[in-house]
């Protein structure tokens, strides 16, 4: 199973401004020469030594994740990252009007929808676009997007055939050699995470969530979303301090995901849905704070004779591909 991240920002796309990009380039160039480099052949090694947030950064497109196996490909959410995914798909059957796309929706906040009108395969006659959600409003929400004056092409004039599918909460659904099950997340409007299973491996997509239900008793029938997972994508929009200030804003912090992972045996986590107001430096600082928190927790756990399993984790960058 492969998981590719086409968009990892939350709330609003956050492209790097021209002045910030120029400042970053200047900073890198100064650093390059300050280290005594003079030759273009040294560029790759130099860049490899620079932390990611000072190079390409974490990315500015909003939520879009692709889950694939050799036999199946599912997309989670249609944030602005869907545009580039669509461009890639146009290189295959979708470009010939013989393709299909399957998009699961966690919920209908704008950052998880705005890529759909710019998903080129949806305009190509002959393509089959399948859209899925637990919530009943999917068709209404999508048709509203393709309505004047919000978008010049009305839904009825889309080239592809669009199919709407309703998912049963907490009931596994098969798709090729993948099985996925929706579980409820904690967000101001109904939002569903997905647990994917393939060949004995599990991936859980847990965005957007504030994770207000944390104990096994509180999670109840949604606990399996977190149990024994090989890879979890979790909401890390805020720092731990921000989360205590933004109650009911619908998002979590990386340390919360880590503590869930420790308790539930999750092996690896990627944190996404980065705040649009957070610069790459700020996200890197949140990553540093998370590292400090985790190290302190591990030390305390060992001293207290409690389990201190290691969990592999990172803050997600747009373009990352992870094998599960």
């Amino acid at each position: 199973m492969r998981v590719k991240l086409w968009g990892v920002r939350g709330s609003l796309p956050a492209p790097l401004s021209p002045e910030n990009l120029e400042a970053r380039l200047k900073d890198l160039l100064q650093d390059f020469f300050a280290r005594g480099h003079r030759d273009a052949s040294q560029i790759d090694a130099f860049l490899a030594s620079i932390p990611p947030h000072r190079r390409g950064g974490f990315g500015g497109n909003t939520a879009c994740v692709q889950v694939s196996t050799d036999a199946a490909s599912l997309i989670i959410d249609a944030g602005s990252g869907l545009r580039r995914l669509g461009e890639t798909m146009m290189g295959g059957p979708c470009g010939l009007g013989r393709g299909e796309a399957h998009i699961l929706f966690t919920h209908f906040h704008w950052d998880h929808l705005i890529g759909l009108p710019f998903f080129i395969p949806i305009f190509v006659p002959g393509n089959q676009i399948h859209l899925y959600s637990v919530q009943p409003e999917l068709e209404a929400a999508v048709k509203m997007m393709f309505t004047k004056p919000y978008f010049p092409v009305p839904f009825e004039q889309l080239g592809a055939k669009v199919h709407f599918h309703r998912l049963e909460p907490r009931v596994p659904a098969a798709f090729g050699d993948l099985t996925y099950t929706p579980y409820r997340l904690d967000h101001p409007d109904p939002c569903w995470g997905f647990r994917f299973e393939h060949a004995g491996k599990t991936f859980s997509h847990c965005v957007d969530t504030e994770a207000t239900r944390l104990s096994p008793a509180d999670l109840g029938p949604d606990l399996p979303l977190y149990q024994g997972v090989d890879l979890m994508i979790f909401d890390g929009q805020y720092t731990l301090l921000e989360v205590t200030e933004k109650i009911n804003w619908g998002h979590a912090a990386a340390p919360i995901g880590l503590d869930l992972a420790i308790r539930e045996g999750i092996k690896r986590i990627l944190f996404m849905h980065h705040d649009p107001a957070a610069s790459d430096d700020k996200i890197a600082d949140a990553e540093r704070q998370t590292r400090e928190y985790f190290q302190a927790y591990q030390e305390s756990a060992r001293a207290a004779g409690r389990p201190a399993p290691s969990v592999e984790w990172a803050f997600a960058q747009e373009g990352m591909t992870v094998a599960v």
Partner: peptide, 17 residues
């Protein structure tokens, strides 16, 4: 206090407030 995690910290900070 032998151990404190983020799930407890959230409750703690809200309580302090």
């Amino acid at each position: 206090v032998a151990l404190i995690n983020s799930l407890g910290i959230r409750g703690w900070v809200n309580w302090m407030r």
